[in-house]
Simulated scan of single mutants.
Amino acid sequence: MRLTLVTEPSEPAIGVDDVKAVLSLHHGDHDAMIEGLIGAVTRYLDGPGGILGRAIVNQVWRLELESWPDRIVLPVEPVASIEITWFDAEDVEQTLGSEAFEIIESGPAARPVVAWNAGVTLPGLGARMFPVRVAITAGAADGASVDDGLRQAMSLLAAYWYENRGAVSAGQAQEIPFGISAMLARYRVML
């Protein structure tokens, strides 16, 4: 199995003005730094490798598999759409029709799963190492569509990192304040 980010989000979930509002900052002297912090917060939280384990804003991931599994556990959510392709014996990429499968949302404690519909016979595969590909489009449609609670937690975290630029601040020995961690906890995918 191999997972690759194909298309990054076209926009962030929060902007410089969101963080500046938390900081009560009214000048533009540090806008570039705040923009960098927004990127750092996003990379820290976003995608299957982020601490939330989910896509925040619309992005495309490619999952490559060595064979047809009994089912496919999707490694990123929330899923907007998927496209399944495979390489045949002539090494030509083919598309599996959407009538062959369904996405089962397994609930808050589990990842979405692709299940094959009854009576489906999966086609033969070519000799490639990863002949099965699943393109997963996941995340909110745009930054404005991200849940307000998550947007607020991201703004607070970027503001906290702005105010506490060292690894540890005087009197605090925590990476993220407990309040922000509590806000983020409801968005974390539990495996």
Rank of each mutant, 00 (worst) to 15 (best):
T4M: 06
L5V: 00
T7W: 04
E8V: 12
S10W: 10
I14T: 05
I14C: 03
D18V: 00
D18S: 00
D18H: 00
K20C: 00
V22F: 13
S24Y: 07
H26Y: 11
H26K: 10
G28Y: 09
H30R: 15
H30S: 12
D31Y: 03
A32F: 13
M33H: 11
M33A: 15
G36P: 11
G36K: 06
L37R: 01
G39S: 07
R43K: 11
Y44M: 12
L45K: 03
D46G: 06
P48R: 04
G50I: 02
I51G: 06
I56T: 09
I56W: 03
N58K: 15
Q59T: 02
V60W: 03
W61C: 02
R62N: 10
L63Q: 04
L65M: 08
P69Y: 01
I72T: 01
L74Q: 08
P75E: 04
P75M: 00
V76N: 09
E77G: 14
P78S: 02
P78Q: 02
V79T: 00
S81L: 03
I82V: 14
I82D: 03
E83T: 14
E83S: 10
T85G: 09
T85D: 04
E90K: 11
E93L: 05
E93H: 08
T95Q: 05
G97F: 03
A100D: 12
E102K: 14
I103A: 00
E105A: 06
G107R: 13
G107T: 13
A110P: 07
P112M: 00
W116I: 05
W116T: 09
W116D: 05
G119C: 05
V120K: 05
L122Y: 04
G124S: 13
L125S: 01
A127I: 10
R128W: 04
R128N: 04
F130M: 07
V132W: 04
R133H: 12
V134G: 00
T137D: 00
A138T: 03
A140Q: 07
A141G: 08
A141L: 14
A141K: 12
D142N: 07
G143Y: 09
G143K: 04
G143S: 03
G149V: 07
L150T: 13
R151K: 15
Q152Y: 12
L156E: 15
L156S: 06
L157D: 02
A158N: 09
Y162H: 15
E163Y: 06
V168D: 08
V168K: 11
Q172I: 11
E175N: 13
I176D: 10
I176F: 12
I180F: 11
A182M: 10
M183P: 06
A185C: 08
V189I: 13
V189E: 11
L191S: 08
